[in-house]
Design a protein around this nucleic acid. Structure first.
Lengths: 247, 247
DNA sequence: TCCAGAATCCAACCTAGGTCGGGTTACGGG
DNA sequence: CCCGTAACCCGACCTAGGTTGGATTCTGGA
């Protein structure tokens, strides 16, 4: 079995973006004990308050993380796609501080968290790549905080559409300016801190102004530069470029 | 020199919360090469876009991290106090994605990031503690995203006041219900995604209703339970309780 | 094929919080 | 001790986005 056919290949692909991995690193990663499972659309992978003993890698499909607040509102914190190590956060912190839910039907691999820790310190390049992965995740959280805290509705939506384009493209799941996005307007509202009806108004506005062209679940960005400008979007926070070797 | 008198003692205190450290871990941590500097109130420690080669530990005083958005707005992302490793994020990610600024005059220790990485993998308990520290940081980001995205002004402010109480108390810098907080209302506005005038209205409201009693820079919480309820506040996201040994 | 439920879309109206233009108080430096 | 600046505070008014109550279109089973 070559590495590209291996179950955990998407994880290797992802971590390989963050650090230079040698053959032994690759083999060690792919040799991690794991169990794959298919999670139905809308089902929970981790619940707030759980104490998961396994980390979870998304092999196909989409998932998202969210929090519920006291008044019944929900804030989506991030959206994940193939290769994302969706739950190093909750499993390493021991007690989950948010929910993780399948957005579409998804195939995930569960890896015992102890095996993950052991590997991280046995093979520093892999450990650094995993640490780095959680740091980038935090960087995205920061951008989202700024997005919901300090940008108006149109800017927020445009920003989100740009982020999806870049990340899907980077993960090899679509082109920058044309992709399938399996989210309802209600879910987009929970990403941006808006209401579903205002998301609708805002999306219509972007379409009307020729920045985007949506059909039901697909987005075509007609003018990337204008949309990026309207969304105050700069890819820097995704840290896509800066791979590093361990010192 | 005993460890409690050592320059880096606040960092040891903080990391010791996250993992069980033995004597050798402690000595190795305190032996990290570093240079201390005093940063004047309002001065920048790291700027968005920099490529810092040193990480930074806050030894005394306060600092905060923030992002500027296109329309001139500013979103404060977190507030830091003695012992906080303020900038593992930016230095490990190589190119900073946000600013770090001194809130008061502050004494910081700069540690070469290569030395930090080397130590993290040479001594797994310390490495895990540092990783954990960055994960808790991300958890706070998530809570703040939910705070600005899905809670109303009064709830946001109450939540923030509760967080400060708990964290200052935990850091040994004040009691849960009575502390000095060196932030202006403008800065509180940038934490909560509100305007300064609405922060003023909201704080007045909490005072009027007997939940808090403020003088200029000090906060007394008159009724913790009510304030925590009003702020939809649960300490869980701070992960204060769950120390762990490395497997 | 048809039907039920979910998602989208729409217009009229409302309100939390923003904006504007002040006045007042605290405080560090000379 | 005084003065200039920064922070706090206040009321009148405005608007981005929320709320309500629909009509319409998709979609996946039976």
């Amino acid at each position: 079995m070559t590495s590209s056919e291996h179950t955990l290949a998407p994880m290797l692909r992802k971590l390989g973006k963050w650090a230079v991995l040698d053959k032994q690193d690759e083999q060690a990663l792919l040799a991690l004990p794991h169990e794959t499972r298919t999670i139905g659309k809308g089902n929970y992978i981790v619940r707030d308050g759980d104490t998961p003993t396994r980390s979870c890698v998304l092999l196909s499909g989409f998932a998202y993380r969210h929090k519920l607040v006291g008044n019944g509102g929900r804030q989506i914190l991030s959206v994940h796609m193939s290769g994302d190590v969706v739950d190093l956060q909750n499993s390493l912190l021991r007690v989950a501080d948010h929910d993780v839910q399948a957005l579409t039907e998804a195939v995930v691999a569960f890896i015992p968290v102890d095996a993950v820790k052991e590997l991280a310190f046995a093979r520093p390049a892999l450990g650094m790549a995993m640490w780095y992965d959680t740091l980038v995740d935090a960087s995205v959280h920061r951008e989202w905080t700024a997005n919901v805290g300090r940008r108006d509705a149109r800017t927020r939506m445009a920003h989100l559409l740009c982020e999806f384009g870049v990340r899907l493209h980077d993960a090899g799941l679509g082109s920058l300016c044309s992709y399938e996005m399996p989210m309802t307007q209600e879910q987009l509202a929970d990403c941006t801190g808006l209401t579903p009806v205002h998301v609708n108004r805002t999306l219509k506005g972007l379409d009307r102004d020729g920045l985007t062209q949506r059909t039901l679940r697909s987005v075509a960005i007609r003018d990337w530069d204008s949309l990026a400008k309207a969304g105050d979007f700069d890819t820097r926070y995704l840290h896509l470029a800066d791979k590093q070797a361990l010192a």
